[in-house]
Amino acid sequence: MDPRVLDRLRCPVCGERLAEETVGTARALRCPRRHSFDIARQGYVNLLAGRAPHVGDTAEMVAARADFLAAGHYDVISAALATAATDALGRLGAPDAPPPIEPSVPDFEAYPLVVDAGAGTGRYLGAVLAALPDAVGLALDVSKPALRRAARAHPRAAAALADTWQRLPLADASTAVLLNVFAPRNGAEFHRVLHPAGTLLVVTPDTGHLAELVSALDLLRVDPDKADRVTGSLGGHFTLVSSSAHRAELTLGRAEVASVVGMGPNAWHTDPAALAARLAALAEPVRVTVAVRLDVLRPR
């Protein structure tokens, strides 16, 4: 594991620092109290403290997401995050930026850490790191199929199995930028791991997102108040700095429509047989709107 990321990790059981050890062909992270966490051969480390209440996205959902994102259909989101993260790191180095809470974190400004909480395949983290040549990254997710891909998302990225609802396996104030894209949010933990001058970037569906498919395929509808509720839920720990809308118009075939449905929450809530029938009835090409909101928040 990249030592620049390892320096920021902490044991999820006792909070001590972690070090990498190799025994034969097996690798693991261990703390001074000998709590041990295996590094899978695919490159991610399991940093769960106990069992997660859910296993996250399935292999089928992850494969659908990987195919859809690789085609560039959500690059509007990647570009918005990369721009916002670049702006955030510029603020981090400002003369009036607060000092780190934990100054023992080595090379904080030399190697700022970008964390993607609920990273999925790591596509967005990879795009942000590509725009930030001095940063390192960490993908956190509870889905093993997703982490197998996230571990290869970028040469400067590491990946760890972790539940967003538990204590995150990171040092206090260790993170410069925290990404949260269509994923659960733990405001208290996000606040703890972010540098006082750090930035939280939250992407949520906006009104009109995939609207052309909602009626045609009987999909879940976007709550028109969702973005405001998300911001409100973080209000005790963060201040909203800015909010921007990002849109794109896609032209998709049926297979791509099936991927965008299968990669998200609709995969859990849609009857496969009924969905297949509705997909077969769609006239190609299918025009689909991408509409998201990007909120930039800073710790209180």
Rank of each mutant, 00 (worst) to 15 (best):
P133S: 12
G93I: 02
A82R: 05
A70M: 01
G118T: 09
G122N: 11
V142N: 12
A71I: 00
A127K: 00
G126V: 07
A64C: 14
A80E: 01
V62E: 06
A70K: 07
A80K: 02
D134G: 14
T86P: 00
A146N: 10
S78Q: 00
A64K: 02
P103H: 08
R123P: 02
D107G: 13
L81I: 11
V105Y: 09
S104D: 15
E60Y: 03
R65N: 10
D75K: 00
L129A: 13
A85V: 01
S143Q: 07
G122V: 08
P100Q: 06
G122E: 09
R91G: 15
G122R: 09
V128W: 08
G72S: 05
L132R: 13
A135P: 11
L113C: 10
G90W: 01
E60W: 02
G126I: 05
A84N: 03
A82W: 04
L113M: 14
A130H: 12
I77W: 04
A88P: 05
P100H: 00
A82Y: 05
L129T: 13
I101V: 15
A117Q: 07
D75M: 01
L129S: 13
V142W: 07
G93Q: 11
A139T: 07
D141E: 04
A135T: 10
A117F: 02
L69S: 04
L89F: 04
D141Y: 07
V142H: 05
F68K: 04
I101E: 14
G90M: 00
L69Y: 07
Y111Q: 13
S143K: 03
L113T: 11
R123H: 15
D96V: 03
T121C: 06
G137P: 13
A71Y: 01
M61Y: 08
A64G: 06
A70S: 15
V115D: 08
D67T: 13
V128D: 06
T86V: 04
